[in-house]
Computed example of a mutant assay.
Amino acid sequence: MKFTVSQSSLLKALSVVSKGLGSNSTIPIMSGIYIKADQGTLEFQTNNLVITVRHRIPANVEETGETVVSGKVLMNIVKTLPDSAVVFDGGQRTISISCEKSSFRLNTLNPADWSEFPEYSLESATELPCELLSEMVDKVYRLTSKESSRPVLQGILLTAGDNTIRLVASDSYRLAVCDASAETGDGDFSAIVPGNVFHEVLGMTDGAEKISIGITDSQVVFSFGNTTLVSSKIGGTFPNYRQLLPTSCSTSVKINIAEFSAALRRVTSIATTNAAVRLDIDADGKVMRLSTSSPDQGEATEVLPVEVEGESCSIGHNYHYVFDCMNAVSDKKEITLELQTSMKPGVFKTNGKINYLYILMPVRL
């Protein structure tokens, strides 16, 4: 095997497929990058048993062949090389890498031990705009559950149809629903996509306009540009989140996001052991009072002017979860908080290019 490729093109390709490298794997080949040179094209693959990534780039291929090289070592080398032509030669047991005055000889692994890229036949698929979808995933993926006891909550429910994209995520303490208008093609699409994988994939698109997402009975397949990524699909049925969406409220509060976030950060600075923040809404005085207390540190309060419709009301929330909501809508100026009683969930809402709804269970005051 012998080929020449530019350092910048090679580094970009390695950065993409490195997302599929195994970490601390006891199987050496899982920490490797499979390289295949064939007729003017280099193909790179990684596989960590959760996702499999394939990426192709053009190159000057003099001799075809395949090999497997340590991903970490290869990345470390290529990062340090100048932006010039990089020549690879060999591949059976060792491979030499040269670039200008630098040269390396690396031990390789047997490509015959590499698992073939998964074959798949899509049952359904949709093509969506990368930039918009990435913004939406950023707003919901942190809500996916970290507990393996309910795998379905580790995923994001993606539905696309009638030119509307919707993402839903929940860890059972809170629920986020994201809607946006975009061309979705014919038919309806629905899949539960692993949250971390979804976020990782959209961080790899690097300027691609569209991403294709398809499903088989056990896989989710992402395709964009010269990259294909296959992940296991989360089975089961996503909870019926629609029944959790309140149809009315007794109190509606318009909140300046920047001012509220700053006040929340101040009053919770003493809450080292108690994660609860109390929100008292005074409908007559048109103010919101934020307060926290800590048995060891004391108490903190701050009053914010707000627009209130309806009745005065109080509610307690886990302030870490409130911060997650504020971070998700930090690009907005204002958010609406809708309340029913102190024992029912609070609902944060914003509208715009992306409509965002965040339902948060209360804590006992």
Score class of each variant (00 low, 15 high):
M1F: 06
K2C: 07
L11A: 15
A13V: 12
L14Q: 09
V16Y: 15
S18F: 08
N24R: 15
I33N: 08
A37W: 06
G40Q: 12
N48H: 01
N48S: 03
V50Y: 12
I51S: 08
I51C: 01
R54F: 00
H55M: 01
A59Q: 01
E62Q: 13
E63Q: 15
V73S: 10
F88G: 03
G90I: 11
G90H: 11
I95Y: 08
S98H: 00
C99D: 09
S102R: 10
S103N: 15
S103A: 14
R105C: 12
N107I: 14
T108I: 02
F117V: 06
P118W: 08
T126G: 02
E127A: 14
P129N: 10
E131D: 13
V137L: 01
K139V: 02
K139P: 03
S145H: 13
K146L: 12
K146S: 12
E147K: 10
S148E: 15
R150L: 11
V152A: 05
L153T: 13
L153E: 12
V168I: 05
D171Q: 13
A176P: 03
A176S: 12
E183N: 03
T184Q: 08
A191T: 09
G195E: 07
G195Q: 07
G195K: 05
N196Q: 14
F198R: 00
H199Q: 11
E200N: 11
V201R: 04
V201Q: 01
L202H: 09
G203N: 14
T205F: 10
T205E: 11
D206Q: 14
K210M: 13
I211D: 03
G214L: 08
T216L: 02
D217A: 12
S218Q: 09
S218A: 07
S223V: 15
S223M: 13
G225F: 11
T227E: 04
L229P: 00
F238P: 00
P239W: 04
N240M: 06
L244T: 04
L245S: 06
L245H: 03
L245W: 03
T247V: 09
I255D: 05
I255L: 15
I255C: 07
N256C: 09
I257H: 01
A262E: 14
A263E: 02
A263Q: 05
L264Q: 04
L264I: 08
V267M: 07
V267C: 05
A271Y: 05
T273K: 10
N274H: 08
A275R: 14
D282E: 07
D284F: 11
R289G: 04
L290I: 05
S293Q: 13
G298N: 06
T301N: 13
E302R: 03
E302K: 00
L304W: 06
L304H: 04
V306S: 06
V306E: 06
V306P: 04
V308C: 04
S312K: 08
D324V: 05
D331T: 11
K332P: 00
T336E: 14
K344I: 06
V347F: 11
K349Q: 11
K349E: 10
G352E: 02
G352Y: 04
I354E: 01
Y356H: 04
L357I: 03
I359C: 08
I359P: 03
L360S: 02
